[in-house]
Each structure stands twice: as structure tokens, then as C-alpha cells.
Design a protein around this nucleic acid. Structure first.
Length: 195
DNA sequence: CCGCCGATCTTT
DNA sequence: AAGATCGGCGGG
């Protein structure tokens, strides 16, 4: 089926509007392709759960820039996690990519994640999918519209099949009550235990 | 299957 | 000192 890369306009909206629409779209990095099944919205300086809440820092600089770029941050001193920058320039909106279902490039993903015992563990978490797709600090600021570092998002016309489910975001204390996580119910690649 | 805990960088 | 995490280990 033919693919269409997502354009700047898609990203230039409130992250809470973009997030559910990202479910079912494809994360593409060379031969490695995954279908997004779990995301979380972060709303910049108005969201106590966002890294951008207290204003820009060296780490969060990209989030305060134009939409359609990757914000990749280093977590717990060990892992990388990737967000899509949303909204207007200066707003610091973002959508965290929490899980994808592998579509192609499984061999490359397994090679990049030697500790994953099962294929279900390849991309079922924000740091897992970054490791599987080879996304690290070198991709912070990558332009998904121009695909200047070989990464982009695309749609291929495959219907989602189910209505997206929502829940509070995972692992937060501040902003923990806000229902800004969206996922594909029943998909085994969604992180954590079923809810 | 479940819960605990360590690893170790950024920000407060 | 806590955090947008993960995986190894021990117990049931």
C-alpha cells in the first residue's frame, strides 16, 4: 500500500489533537518501520508533567522550536526517548512515542536490542522503541517533514479498526491525573500491563 | 506472574 | 533528590 509522509501542518496543532491521530501511523527509519500504538501528549509550560514546564533548558531546547521535529531526551541516565514536537513555534508541545508494533526490519530491531527475549519486547516502551530504531541524541532536532536524518512518519491508509482508548500518563507524579495517554486497546505491543 | 532495586544523566 | 525507564533477580 502506498505511503504518504506527514507534512508540517499535521504537527502544527495542539498535542492533544495530534496524539490520537498518530495512532496507526508509521514510524519509518530506513528498513525499520513500526505502527504507532501508544502515545502521550505533553503541553509545554502549562503542563506540570512536561519537561518544558519550567521553561527551556539545554535538554528541552528543541521542544520550544518549530513543529515536526524530534525531541529526543536521555532518561534515567541510560535510555533515550523520542517525542514529536507539536503546536506553534515557541509553545513546546510534544507527543511522546510510547510503543509501536513492528512492521518491517525485525532483524535490525532484534540486533539493536540483544536483551529483548521476545519480539513483543522489541518496541513495547518509549526507550525500547528508540533502541530498536537506533534513535539517540544524534536525532534530537531531526526534521520529520524533510526527513533530514532518515526518520519520518507516514500514513498508509490502514484503518485503525478500533476506537483509541485513553488513560492517565504513565510514570508521572505531577500532572498524573490528566488523561493525555492514547493507545490501541488490545494491541499486545502497548507498554505495561493491560488496563 | 509479580515486585523490588540498581544503573547513572539532567534538572532542581 | 527525583525523574516521561528498563531488565535482572528473587519469591509465590
Amino acid at each position: 500500500m502506498s505511503r504518504r509522509r506527514l507534512g508540517r501542518r499535521f504537527y502544527g496543532r495542539d498535542p492533544r489533537e495530534v496524539a490520537p491521530e498518530l495512532l496507526g501511523t508509521l514510524l519509518v527509519h530506513g528498513e525499520r518501520v513500526g505502527r504507532i500504538v501508544e502515545v502521550e501528549a505533553y503541553c509545554g509550560t502549562e503542563d506540570p508533567g512536561s519537561h518544558a514546564y519550567r521553561g527551556p533548558t539545554p535538554r528541552t531546547r528543541v521542544m520550544f522550536g518549530p513543529p515536526g521535529h524530534l525531541y529526543v531526551y536521555f532518561s534515567y541516565g541510560m535510555h533515550w526517548c523520542a517525542n514529536v514536537v507539536c503546536g506553534t513555534d515557541g509553545q513546546a508541545g510534544a507527543v511522546l512515542l510510547r510503543a509501536v508494533a513492528p512492521v518491517t526490519g525485525l532483524e535490525a530491531m532484534r540486533a539493536a536490542r540483544p536483551r529483548a527475549r521476545r519480539d513483543l519486547d522489541l518496541t513495547s516502551g518509549p526507550a525500547k522503541l528508540c533502541q530498536a530504531f537506533g534513535l539517540d541524541g544524534a536525532f534530537d532536532g531531526a526534521d520529520l517533514v524533510r526527513s533530514d536524518r532518515g526518520v519520518h512518519l507516514a500514513v498508509d491508509g490502514t484503518p485503525l479498526g478500533v476506537a483509541p482508548a485513553t488513560s492517565p500518563r504513565i510514570g508521572l507524579s505531577a500532572g498524573a491525573e490528566l488523561p493525555w495517554r492514547w493507545y490501541v486497546p488490545g494491541d499486545p505491543h502497548v507498554s505495561g500491563r493491560p488496563r
